[in-house]
Lab assay of single mutants.
Amino acid sequence: SNREKAKQAFKELLRDKAVPSNASWEQAMKMVVTDPRYSALPKLSEKKQAFNAYKAQRE
């Protein structure tokens, strides 16, 4: 689905920018907000969900 693709793109973005798994949401956003993939997930709640999944995978 498109939403799954968007989630993957967002997680790839976090990986590409080397966002550490112990980063806070605010720290992570400063690192990725300028990338076009930041807008892949329109809802903030979805971004946070993908971010938390990313962190869980990295730990």
Score class of each variant (00 low, 15 high):
Y54W: 15
R37D: 01
Q57P: 08
E4G: 06
N2S: 09
F10T: 12
K17A: 11
E4W: 02
K5E: 12
A6Y: 03
W25K: 09
K5S: 12
A9T: 15
N52S: 12
K55F: 01
M29L: 09
K48Q: 10
R15I: 12
L14C: 04
Y54Q: 00
N52Y: 09
S39T: 11
P42M: 10
K47L: 02
Q27F: 00
V32T: 12
K7D: 13
K17Q: 09
S24P: 10
A18K: 12
D16I: 02
L13G: 07
K7H: 14
M31L: 10
Q27A: 11
A6D: 13
D35Q: 00
K43F: 02
A9M: 11
V32G: 06
E26I: 03
P36V: 06
A53L: 07
E26D: 13
K11I: 15
R58S: 13
S1Y: 14
Q8E: 13
K5D: 13
K5A: 10
M31T: 07
L41W: 04
R58V: 14
A9L: 12
E59G: 09
A18W: 04
D35W: 00
E46N: 03
F51E: 03
S21V: 14
N22M: 02
E12P: 00
K48Y: 08
L14S: 06
A18Y: 01
A28H: 02
D16K: 01
M29V: 11
R58N: 09
A23L: 06
V19W: 02
Q57F: 03
K17E: 05
W25G: 10
A18D: 14
M31P: 08
K55H: 08
P36G: 05
Q49M: 07
D35S: 01
A9C: 12
R3P: 14
V19D: 07
P36E: 11
V32L: 10
A56S: 13
K7M: 15
E12I: 03
K17P: 03
S45P: 06
S39G: 12
L44M: 12
E26T: 13
E26Y: 02
L41I: 08
Q49N: 04
S45M: 05
S39E: 15
K11R: 13
S45V: 04
V32W: 01
Y38S: 08
P20W: 00
T34V: 05
R15K: 11
K17T: 05
E12K: 04
E26N: 06
K11A: 15
K30Q: 12
W25Q: 06
A53Q: 15
L44E: 15
Q57A: 14
E12A: 09
K11T: 15
A53W: 02
E59A: 15
L14K: 05
A23S: 07
A56R: 11
E4N: 12
